[in-house]
């Protein structure tokens, strides 16, 4: 049935594309007619932003290399960089009951169902159907979406449910005694097996302890700009990588490309998971926490 659907979707792809055309033309017109000073100003802001980011990347390269070496010392599992492709939004859902968007990447680009999608600021959602040249993304705010998260501060694992409101997520089954505060950052825990670990999802906005309720009522605001982002990133976590870039080319991966000199040395005598990652749980627990949406 999914096959039939994705084939049929090709029929309506031109319609979807052309429905987005006015917005596209408007954006183009605004670019064309924008004021020179405004452009110069934007240029300045972008330059300073690039400076800031490149400074961070410089440190990041060193830290990442150090991290890889330390993990090698501990014989821990290597954490791979995720590959990604960029995508552009070409359509919104016309139905106000759901939160979905259509993007301009499809099976031809290696997109698959269940693929995580992020934007510049956080997790957007996941791919729920793929056609040849387009695919459909379910946003985290949709009422049928759930994502396993953890609090960045202390690693407490929770599940963030969409509510149907674009700016609110609800955390399910939070004990009244749980260590959770307003403004806590929620990042993906990677336990559902669908989203890679460590991407920011939401920020806790409100906690209510109601003695009449079995659990605390916690709401959070999604960090991704669900209703504004036009450019998205499709991640390829773990083995499903469409292309294999030369890992040695980027400074961040260079540490992984060195020959394994450590193998000659004696293994450090430490308990196996003394420093193991917080998120590496036994499979049974991981399975019970899994709450990814399956359309």
């Amino acid at each position: 049935m999914a096959q039939v659907r994705s084939t049929l979707t090709i029929v309506v792809t031109p319609l979807q594309w052309s429905a987005d055309l006015p917005g596209r033309l408007w954006g183009w017109g605004v670019d064309l007619l924008s004021h020179r000073n405004a452009l110069l100003e934007e240029n300045e802001t972008l330059k300073s932003q690039v400076l800031l980011l490149s400074k961070r990347v410089e440190r990041m390269a060193a830290l990442a290399a150090e991290n890889v070496r330390l993990r090698e010392l501990l014989h821990a599992v290597a954490v791979d960089e995720e590959n990604f492709i960029t995508a552009e939004l070409i359509g919104l859902d016309a139905d106000p009951f759901t939160h979905q968007v259509v993007i301009n990447r499809g099976r031809e680009d290696g997109v698959y169902v269940g693929q995580p999608v992020i934007d510049a600021t956080g997790l957007m959602g996941q791919v729920i159907s793929v056609a040849a040249y387009t695919s459909r993304v379910l946003l985290v705010a949709d009422a049928s979406h759930a994502v396993p998260v953890q609090i960045n501060r202390n690693g407490l694992r929770l599940i963030a449910l969409g509510t149907g409101a674009i700016d609110e997520l609800r955390l399910a089954h939070v004990p009244d005694t749980a260590d959770i505060e307003e403004n806590d950052l929620l990042v993906t825990s990677g336990l559902g097996g669908r989203f890679p670990v460590g991407y920011p999802v939401a920020q806790v906005t409100h906690i209510q302890h109601d003695p009449g309720q079995p659990f605390a009522i916690v709401s959070a605001r999604p960090l991704a700009q669900l209703d504004r982002s036009r450019y998205l990133l499709l991640l390829f976590p773990n083995a499903r990588q469409p292309w294999q870039p030369d890992a040695c080319r980027s400074p961040i991966n260079s540490a992984q490309c060195r020959p394994h000199r450590l193998e000659d040395t004696e293994p450090v005598d430490l308990p196996a998971n003394a420093f193991a990652d917080e998120t590496e749980q036994p499979p049974a627990e991981a399975a019970s926490t899994q709450a990814s949406h399956s359309p």
Binding site: L15, S18, A19, G23, G91, A94, P96, I166, D227
Partner: peptide
């Protein structure tokens, strides 16, 4: 179909 698929602001979506 085109008008039905046209993106609209969230608030106006109900009035389409």
């Amino acid at each position: 179909l085109y008008l039905q698929a046209m993106p609209m602001p969230d608030g106006l979506l109900w009035w389409r």
